[in-house]
């Protein structure tokens, strides 16, 4: 009976005590070790000179970065990536937040149908709707090009903003809005002075998450991008699948550049959002 412990305070003690816990932690450690191996081997390789039959390369150098930068035209690629991502963020917030507001606050005929329509793009594999969408975009001359990439990336992003913001808006007490209106605030003042400031943290979180997803989105961009509208991840894919033509290390250098971009975004994101929000919709009530 002495082993019956409350869960909160004794996790650390149990770590020492139970063999089951050791097994779990060992699994976590194994996973992290392999992860470190995966990331580390790319990182080391990108700084290495010759690396064949040894634990580490023969020497270290930074020249692959310069090579990759020039060879792949990374400045252009990065600026295209940023342009596309920011456009997607802006448009999806502008479309998604008002819709989330209505879905959070109102009941109306066919609401479940509308919700389902917003959920589908997230549930479907990107290729499933990506190929017909790309065909349509090509037909209208919107792809290949930045417009096509932005439009196709909006398909999962707008529903994502809606799904993230709806619970966030739901947890804002609706009587706060009623109170503002009873104080004489019209719709404009309501949104600018009361709802706006309360929604900023949620919008920021949703925006950053969309940014991370768009920078990392491969399939849709791949299907709609032309040579001058490739994002970093697509450029990386092309250089990898054409391996052999270029030095392995310069591809590694490019992968590191991509990862550091994502990591910077991740670090920024984690300042604003809980890690679980990176994958799920906002579940926990944010601090006031």
């Amino acid at each position: 009976m002495a082993a019956t412990t409350s869960t909160n305070t004794t996790t650390r003690r149990r770590l020492v005590a139970s063999p089951g816990a050791w097994l779990v932690w060992a699994a976590v450690a194994f996973f992290l070790l392999n992860l470190a191996g995966v990331v580390g081997s790319v990182l080391v390789s990108s700084f290495g000179t010759r690396w064949f039959d040894s634990w580490f390369p023969e020497g270290f150098t930074g020249e692959w970065y310069g090579a990759a930068w020039k060879e792949f035209g990374l400045l252009d690629v990065i600026s295209v990536t940023l342009q596309i991502s920011l456009l997607v963020v802006l448009i999806s917030v502008l479309i998604g937040v008002p819709a989330a507001y209505v879905l959070a606050r109102r009941t109306f005929p066919f609401k479940r149908l509308v919700m389902f329509a917003f959920l589908l793009p997230i549930l479907m594999p990107p290729i499933t709707y990506g190929i017909p969408l790309a065909t349509v975009l090509y037909k209208f001359g919107l792809a290949p090009g930045i417009a096509g990439v932005v439009l196709s990336n909006l398909v999962p992003s707008v529903p994502f903003v809606i799904l993230t913001m709806t619970p966030f808006i739901e947890q804002i007490n609706p009587s706060i809005e009623s109170a503002a209106r009873m104080c004489g605030a019209g719709v404009r003042a309501l949104f600018l002075r009361v709802l706006g400031p309360l929604l900023v943290p949620g919008i920021l979180a949703a925006a950053i998450l969309v940014l991370v997803r768009t920078v990392g989105m491969f399939e849709l961009t791949f299907l709609t991008a032309g040579p001058d509208s490739q994002t970093l991840v697509v450029a990386l894919y092309y250089s990898m699948s054409a391996a052999g033509i270029r030095a392995q290390q310069s591809i590694d250098a490019m992968a590191v550049i991509y990862t550091s971009t994502m990591l910077v975004l991740l670090v920024i994101a984690l300042r604003f959002v809980n890690p679980t929000q990176l994958v799920a919709r906002v579940k926990e009530t944010p601090e006031p």
């Binding site: 009587s175 706060i176 009623s178 109170a179 400031p197």
Partner: peptide, 9 residues
Amino acid sequence: FQSYALFPH
């Protein structure tokens, strides 16, 4: 209001 509904910000 029952919940006061003060503007928290």
